[in-house]
């Protein structure tokens, strides 16, 4: 019985590899806050990934018992009561971006069940830090014909 010719197998796998390298993006940080994003149909795609800072607002994963919302900016975690410290962190983040600071965008990944009070506190911190371009992240709803 002749052996199966596997000489083209590496090429095949390499093409799959390249496909994945192109369509995916590096995961920036570990998310420690559980977030269920809202769904939408009128969404735009966020370009220029380098100047984006992610802020997650949701239920902290390491403390499941407490229902208190948590905020995560990069690897920093804040509780609801510490929201006033956020401004300093955003300013720091802005400095880190250097020349790209003017193009800084903040992607807010907020859980559906978060109340507007907390969001408005976060927005006030962003305004004070002059990070004015924000972006409410959401998942695309596919069933609508948009």
């Amino acid at each position: 019985m002749p052996e199966l010719n596997t000489s083209s197998l590496p090429d095949l796998i390499f093409s799959i590899l390249f496909f994945f390298m192109i369509v995916t993006s590096m995961r920036e940080q570990e998310v420690k806050v559980q977030v269920e994003l809202p769904k939408g149909t009128e969404l735009t795609k966020l370009e220029r990934k380098s100047a984006i800072t992610n802020i997650y607002i949701g239920t902290p994963m390491n403390n499941k018992e407490s229902q208190e919302a948590g905020i995560q900016l990069n690897d920093r975690q804040l509780s609801r009561r510490e929201v006033n410290n956020l401004k300093a962190y955003i300013v720091e983040e802005k400095e880190r971006l250097g020349s790209k600071a003017a193009k800084m965008k903040v992607a807010l990944k907020i859980d559906n069940n978060i109340d507007m009070g907390l969001l408005s506190d976060v927005k006030m911190q962003l305004r004070k830090a002059y990070a004015l371009q924000i972006f409410y992240s959401a998942n695309e709803e596919k069933n609508n014909g948009q």
Partner: peptide, 17 residues
């Protein structure tokens, strides 16, 4: 190490402080 989810959402401009 990579993730597939691309960033979709609503873009909003906040007012000054």
């Amino acid at each position: 190490v990579t993730s597939m989810n691309s960033n979709f959402g609503l873009q909003v401009m906040l007012p000054n402080p």
